[in-house]
């Protein structure tokens, strides 16, 4: 049982209608679905395959091929750490280790149990002049150190407590 999927089910139906149930527009449909749910729940993929008249394994294949799609629910705040060549030589690994340690993330799970943070690494953000780069919730932070990154995360955490998690 995936809780709350249906609260946006009207939206799901309208996305399918928008693309006229056209199986050739599968990627665009999945992108819009992910926009709604922040990830691609299995039930939604099943529903999409039914609605488009294609096999669910095709939908699953596309969803797992592109790193843009995620099949796991993401945290409220997404931290993207650049590990491209420039960031890498300027020690992005140290930042990665520091975030992991601070948030208690393991190799297997990159989302905190309270669903507040998700950590991702990306290949290159094209901001090599600012290396190393961290993007938190689509906001770019350049010339980062482990300490300044943790400080940013602490800031968000504090705000969350004030707002009562809303």
């Amino acid at each position: 049982m995936s809780d709350g999927i249906g609260t946006k089910f009207d939206k799901v139906c309208s996305i399918l209608d928008k693309y006229e149930h056209n199986p050739h527009k599968l990627i665009a449909i999945l992108q819009d679905m992910q926009e709604e749910y922040k990830y691609l729940p299995e039930d939604i993929m099943t529903f999409v395959s039914t609605a488009l008249g294609i096999s669910p394994s095709t939908v699953y294949g596309v969803a797992t091929f592109y790193s843009h799609f995620t099949l796991q629910p993401k945290g409220k705040h997404v931290i993207k750490l650049c590990d491209g060549t420039a960031c890498h030589v300027r020690k992005s690994q140290d930042i990665l280790n520091a975030i992991k340690k601070y948030l208690g993330l393991s190799k297997k799970s990159n989302t905190t149990p309270d669903m507040l943070f998700t950590l991702e690494t990306v290949a290159c953000l094209g901001a090599c002049g600012l290396a190393p780069v961290v993007v938190i919730d689509d906001q770019v932070h350049g010339l980062m150190t482990p300490e300044s990154t943790i400080a940013l995360i602490e800031e968000i955490k504090k705000e969350e407590v004030v707002c009562g998690g809303n």
């Binding site: 299995e42 993929m45 099943t46 395959s49 294609i54 096999s55 394994s57 091929f65």
Partner: peptide
């Protein structure tokens, strides 16, 4: 025209699986 199996994932991780990595006995 059943399409039970398809490629999933990419590169070195690519594999042939049924949808959502389920068993063949649980799918179509």
């Amino acid at each position: 025209s059943v399409g039970v199996l398809d490629f999933a994932n990419r590169g070195a991780d690519a594999e042939v699986v049924a949808c959502f990595n389920k068993g063949l006995g649980e799918v179509e």
